[in-house]
């Protein structure tokens, strides 16, 4: 009885999977994504990318929660953050997580970039993934800077003001840049609206699809890893080269095909 019921449930499960596969291809896609070969030796080294993705996800989640209380007006911005920190349930935890994960994110993304640089993982055919990664780092940095200003406290505001003033020295477009960042000639309500739009809408809207492209390119070309992932194959290549130098070209079965020095053939 139990065996028959179990078999029936298994049958239903299989039917459901087949039905889903036929209509969406979800089963084969999941298999392809989950069971793709990845390098095993330096697996901990390659967690920097997923750690970056995790921290960005944490930023999105905690940021959305902060939006429940944050008010982006000059009269209420500081008060709303003070309320989050002192009155809102888990407000101090959520804002603290948003703040610290942003700082960790910048650190981890830097390490990820250094690791990619040192292992030469940007070489063909992975050039475009490096380019997308550089844009991601720039966007994350601007997001962190704009988040600093959203506090609308002395430190955040004046840091934004100084940053905006420095950008006004940009050749040719300086005046346009500062007007855009401040929302006018001087800092005021329009500035906060601009910073809010930048931090909450514009930059995440650019960031999210770029992360998608970064991941797509990673899966398309595969993780390169580092040269120690290929040390035995590289050793085999060196050995073949040495044999070729000594005996001439070597065929698949290891036989000497074209000996430059015929006396070697015996």
């Amino acid at each position: 009885m139990i065996a028959r019921t179990t078999a029936r449930i298994r049958g239903w499960g299989r039917d459901l999977m087949d039905w889903m596969e036929e209509r969406t291809g979800i089963v084969s896609l999941t298999e392809k994504l989950l069971y793709e070969p990845t390098p095993a030796r330096g697996r901990w080294l390659y967690t920097l990318g997923s750690a970056t993705l995790f921290l960005i996800t944490l930023q999105f989640l905690t940021g959305i929660l902060l939006l429940f209380y944050y008010v982006p007006t000059t009269d209420n911005a500081w008060d709303s953050i003070h309320y989050i920190m002192t009155q809102a349930y888990f407000g101090r935890l959520i804002r603290g997580m948003h703040f610290w994960s942003a700082n960790l994110l910048l650190f981890v993304i830097g390490l990820h970039m250094v690791r990619t640089f040192l292992s030469g993982s940007y070489k063909a055919p992975r050039e475009m993934n490096w380019v997308v990664g550089v844009f991601l780092i720039l966007i994350v940095t601007i997001m962190a800077f704009s988040g600093y200003a959203l506090r609308w406290d002395q430190e955040g505001f004046w840091a934004w003001e100084v940053g905006a003033m420095i950008s006004s020295y940009t050749p040719l477009i300086g005046s346009w840049v500062i007007t855009t960042l401040l929302g006018g000639d001087t800092a005021g309500p329009a500035t906060l609206s601009r910073v809010f739009a930048l931090h909450v809408w514009l930059l995440p809207a650019v960031l999210a699809p770029l992360i998608g492209v970064h991941l797509y390119l990673l899966r398309k070309h595969g993780e390169f890893g580092a040269t120690f992932e290929y040390s035995e194959r590289l050793a085999a290549l060196r050995k073949r080269r040495q044999m070729e130098e000594t005996f001439g070209s070597v065929e698949e079965d290891g036989q000497v095909a074209d000996a430059g020095d015929h006396s070697q053939e015996g």
């Binding site: 500081w78 920190m85 101090r92 603290g96 506090r151 609308w152 955040g156």
Partner: peptide, 13 residues
């Protein structure tokens, strides 16, 4: 860190 070192908030702008 979120509990041990709260996110900073200086005086209002």
């Amino acid at each position: 860190l979120a509990y041990a070192v709260p996110a900073p908030l200086t005086e209002p702008m």
